[in-house]
């Protein structure tokens, strides 16, 4: 089984810890994981802002970067949704505009069935829900919209989290409501975006958990931005870092331990 890690551009630059956690986690589960250096961005920021034509080279680039692997695994539901829902559209709409491009067609055909969000890969492909993790903190989980609604991740993340030793999961009120990130929405409609994020943070604080966990760092970056702006006692963390944490190699919080309890 040849598995490629598609880390995503945001994680590569801003959240390398998540990438390291995915690698540690998958290697611990016996998966040999590779990181093709040619990867960059799935094109979602371009596509969702309206620049479909500018997305096309990135779609072709993704297909080239991940050719030959059995599975492409990524710790971002949003980027998987881009591939699964929108790559076929990018190809079909180029065709409809009289610019058929076989490489776009093939990119969609070959990437869609092989691209998995991390929790899908763990539960559906590897068939594990208990990954042997240890994380002795109170955690609340925010299901990001694209994972929740476009991919239908359902209870996969929560199954994985509830099997973690020592964890105390607390239900997030209004969990299924968007955090307000939405890519360029966060700046184009910054007031509404921030209002949504502030409500999300308030709901998370109400749980009393010190850690807000998610499976999409873009959303967490927005939420964390509000947390830090408001000096709220909350620490955001990607689910992969919780699953990677073990008794032998426990998660080391960048903030003081007391703050996340």
């Amino acid at each position: 089984m040849r598995v490629a890690l598609f880390l995503t551009c945001v994680n590569d630059l801003l959240f390398p810890d998540t990438g390291r956690a995915v690698v540690r986690l998958l290697e611990r589960l016996g998966v040999e994981v590779d990181f093709p250096m040619a990867q960059s961005c799935c094109g979602q920021p371009h596509y969702n802002t309206g620049y479909r034509h500018e997305t096309e080279p990135l779609v072709r680039g993704m297909a080239a970067a991940f050719a030959g692997y059995d599975y492409v695994v990524t710790p971002s539901g949003s980027c998987v949704a881009m591939v699964r829902d929108n790559y076929p559209r990018v190809a079909a709409r180029a065709r409809a505009e009289g610019r058929p491009d076989g490489r776009l067609d093939r990119a969609a055909e070959t990437l869609v069935p092989r691209t998995y969000e991390l929790t899908e890969f763990l539960v559906d492909v590897l068939g594990v829900t208990d990954v042997g993790a240890y994380f002795p903190y109170a955690v609340t989980y925010h299901p990001s919209c694209h994972g929740l609604r476009m991919l239908g991740l359902k209870d996969r993340p929560l199954k994985l989290l509830s099997a973690v030793e020592g964890i105390e999961l607390r239900e997030l009120p209004g969990a299924e409501e968007c955090c307000g990130f939405g890519g360029t929405f966060a700046v184009k409609n910054s007031d509404v975006s921030a209002a949504m994020g502030q409500d999300k943070v308030r709901n998370a604080l109400d749980t009393g958990a010190g850690v807000l966990c998610g499976a999409d760092n873009s959303c967490l970056m927005h939420i964390e931005g509000i947390v830090r702006h408001e000096h709220a006692p909350l620490h955001t963390l990607h689910l992969a870092e919780i699953l990677a944490s073990t008794r032998e190699q426990p998660y080391r919080p960048p903030v003081s331990e007391a703050k996340i309890r």
């Binding site: 880390l7 994680n11 590569d12 630059l13 801003l14 959240f15 390398p16 810890d17 990438g19 390291r20 690698v23 990181f35 250096m37 966060a186 700046v187 184009k188 910054s190 921030a194 994020g197 502030q198 970056m221 927005h222 964390e224 931005g225 509000i226 830090r228 702006h229």
Partner: peptide, 28 residues
Amino acid sequence: RTAKAWTDTRTLPQVPDQTFRQWWKQHT
């Protein structure tokens, strides 16, 4: 202006000292 739209309500993320791909090279 665009950046201000973010930072009026949100602190910017800190850029880590190393990208993942830099770490990956060492790791491999």
